[in-house]
Design a binder for these strands. Sequence first.
DNA 1: TAATGGGTGCACT
DNA 2: AAGTGCACCCATT
Lengths: 575, 575
Amino acid sequence: MDKNARLDEIFAYILNNTNVENDMHNLQEAHDFNEIHNSIEEKCNTFSNDDQKSSTFISENSNNKRPSNGDTSIGTPTTKYSNTINDKGQNSGMERLTGISEFSDPATNINDFYHQVFSNFSHLQHLADRDTKNISQGNDFFQPLEDTAQVNQNQLVNSSSIMQSKLFEENILKELLPSSPQATDNTKNNSNYHNHLTEIAIESLKRQRNQSKLIHLDSVPDFQDSKDVKIWLQKIFYPLGIEIAIERSDKSKITYKCKALKKKDEVYQNNHVHTPVNEAKDSGEMGKKKRVKSQYNTCPFRIRASYKIKRKKWEVVILNNFHSHQLKFNPDSLNYKQFKDTLREMGDIETIKKFDELEYKAQKNLPVDVDTIPCECGLTEEVQSFGVVIPSSFNCQSKPQNSSVKKFAQKKSNSENPKLSKEVLTKNLPISKVKKQSSKSVSTIHSNALENLTRDSSIEKESNNSNAFEEWENENQVLLSSGHGTVESSIMGLNSLQANRSPEIKASSMFDFNMDINEVDFTDLFLKPSKKMDGHVAKTSSENLVEESISKNNDITKDLNDLKLFDLGSNGHYM
Amino acid sequence: MDKNARLDEIFAYILNNTNVENDMHNLQEAHDFNEIHNSIEEKCNTFSNDDQKSSTFISENSNNKRPSNGDTSIGTPTTKYSNTINDKGQNSGMERLTGISEFSDPATNINDFYHQVFSNFSHLQHLADRDTKNISQGNDFFQPLEDTAQVNQNQLVNSSSIMQSKLFEENILKELLPSSPQATDNTKNNSNYHNHLTEIAIESLKRQRNQSKLIHLDSVPDFQDSKDVKIWLQKIFYPLGIEIAIERSDKSKITYKCKALKKKDEVYQNNHVHTPVNEAKDSGEMGKKKRVKSQYNTCPFRIRASYKIKRKKWEVVILNNFHSHQLKFNPDSLNYKQFKDTLREMGDIETIKKFDELEYKAQKNLPVDVDTIPCECGLTEEVQSFGVVIPSSFNCQSKPQNSSVKKFAQKKSNSENPKLSKEVLTKNLPISKVKKQSSKSVSTIHSNALENLTRDSSIEKESNNSNAFEEWENENQVLLSSGHGTVESSIMGLNSLQANRSPEIKASSMFDFNMDINEVDFTDLFLKPSKKMDGHVAKTSSENLVEESISKNNDITKDLNDLKLFDLGSNGHYM
DNA sequence: TAATGGGTGCACT
DNA sequence: AAGTGCACCCATT
Ligand SMILES: [Zn+2]
Ligand SMILES: [Zn+2]
């Protein structure tokens, strides 16, 4: 449609004006492998000594199977259903997750693995090539392409080589740990890995609030059990003041939502509750009725996790990254207590410490970086933390209350739009030159380094709330000072490995093949003003496009209209 | 209020013009105890020999506890949750159900029990007195009163001494089997008992269709496990063409509903699906949202089972005994297959046979006594089996679709209405004289004999559909001819035992103490025209009141207005 | 677990 | 009609 045509234009422009190779070279020069090896090994040894449970998990698991990379779920019933489900799940659908590891050596642990990997570079290279060849792994055809594409996407937007090193390290790790037969299980070290990815995700989400479109979470660890997905998400969303609950789950698909507020939580409900009017016009086909829900259970926020057989990985997508209520970290919540118990059973001391600090802050009424998220109705409402007013005309059209959840990308619109733009994006656009981008400042660099969100259109926005960000940075600093810094800094060096992959693969796909072009929109470009720049819109590069569209100026709709990226009317998310 | 005042009037009149004692005497003369004893014993021996499974269940159960009277749930997972739940339920709330049986003799079985009871009349008398004194059983204070009250209620309405014998027998059995320490467990014989009550309930429900008010199911067996409630209800409702599903469950409360229709079942959906209009005005307090429901899941039919601590029994109430869809017995349903598997595991051959016959009929497209139940909207629709047209103006006011289910009696209105009428009913009205009532015909007598429904106002309506009833009778005959007749006929004699109870207790309470007076209404008196009588309304006796209000005349609302029992407008069932 | 959306059984809180 | 957390489903493409 019009929208896609515009996107094609934009992407074409971006691709012709960027160059990724310079960054690659920089990364290679920045680190050497001995450094990486030593620091990681040290980190692993540190953790494997301070808790007995990890070895317990090893022995229990290694008898039957090698969990690819997920937390083990033994003895960690997340919910009351978990035992039941484990019995079934592992006999039916979840077998596939563990079946690939039948050949692993039960005696090896994560430390041995690290030794193997980092003391022998050629071995690592072999592992990387394994995916590249994609012969032995039947379904992996697109995996390396996608990984590279995601890297490039982030690179385009965040323009920081240090960030790139982070991302590369993640991609390498993700490839090595979950799928390779040499990988072994070690709860402790898996926790470290998971926690690392967790913090990356948190950082990204914090800077992507109030998005009305899909946000793909990259750097999702591999999970042994589908319940571990929730634990991981809890690690991410509890610190953001969001308590998640499963809305629907499957062997291969889980949908999370905000846990329903109780009546006593009424304080946190946004004031301007919509009076339900004309509920009938909810859906085109009538006859649908709604399950009974309380007025406190209207939040449109959703997380969708689905297991991708091709990648053998869980894909996590955030939908409607805004809330109809205030966000609050509540350490007294029963679910939170259970969550912490689970952490204890898993022996994830790192995360426990982190949440202890969070609890401390919450007790002291210190800010926990939780700000008010406006209702998706788009009616003018202050974002209290920043004093920013959301433009009433943009975020969404005023809509009936019962359609408070944005519809997922629809099949109909998919078929409407032929794959033209997708083809252009994925095949017809060689990315031989990606413009090297300059970093802004140290703190910004750090922020960008943690960037891991893949926007559907691979266009990233810089949402630089110094308030929230500095807070987050401080918090991170605390964590680092309590002994968690080494992993990040050392693993970071891994990105240079990525640079050794064949350039063809890097260039052949800038975009996630699983992405739906129809999910693309630029709505959020204008949702979150920042103090960085004021200015007119320029379409010269993704960098400029993103940064300049972020403006403290409240008259954002004007910029929007200038852009004319798509028809607002025909692309309403609400029906 | 006005309604209750009218009720008081009516009840007072009824009570003053009825006499229960004559019936009592008749019953006493009809049978002698040797007859009872011999036939029951014979019956029991017959069944305990033809299946090995029953003994298996005996041994398994008797080691730990004596199930009061419910089906054992060992190895009978009704749903996928059942195993999980059994583990929990029996450790927590459901302990209450089994705790009372700790002192039972594990060696005795149901046959021994029958021997004890019927070979020694004074012993039986003792058992009856135990409840009467209600000293040893802390919570049983009202139980004998209630039992007597229910008997009287039915007596008033059904006017058949043979029916009374049935009822008495049931009450006696219920007292003996579940609560007395001498009761023993025997799956086979418990099945017999359950099945007997099942058929009673089926019979009653068949004649009480299209009721817009609550229907109390009497003669509910005692259940060992809350899951057994569903099994029992399935025995009742599958033959009626209703597949039930749990809507919500608790330790002490379970709500069942019609299993949602699938899309392929669209044929059975009633045609005039309401177009949802103005869904907003659903409830007085707004802000409620409905869980997503398909258009095929709108049936208002509900069954509410709640465990009464006082009686140590499950109370079963049917709400909205009508459906928004056609009823059809579907032997291919997955749930039905599971149900039958459960029956097999329980060794309930009797029920299995019955359902085999049902399946046979269904295969042959023979009528299975399933008729179309009109939508509760009250719009004119044919009841296909009888060619009866439901008056459009009575059943309910036209209403928005999403309030398709009648609201339960509300607590608020409870407190509004002081207990005046209840006091009148339960204390101030001696029932020294209950009018002896004449029976109509043999077939009718049989029908009445199976009557076990307690209407909320203790006013029974004679709904005499000869079509449905004869069909049912024939079906019953088939069942009896396949070896199920003896229990009923022999146990019937037990009613004379009931007559030996102290008259004071019988007289002191005509009404169920657990009943909510606010649940009372007479709506259904006029819902089901019958061919029995045509005529004007008379208020001279309960008998006349009931019978004369049943009219084939479609102009029922006229009679209703003459009666002026309550304000139609202020007592709408739908909001 | 093809991908992806949604209904609903049913017990927990 | 407690509301809802969660999972077993089904439907469509
Ligand atoms: Zn929310
Ligand atoms: Zn129904």
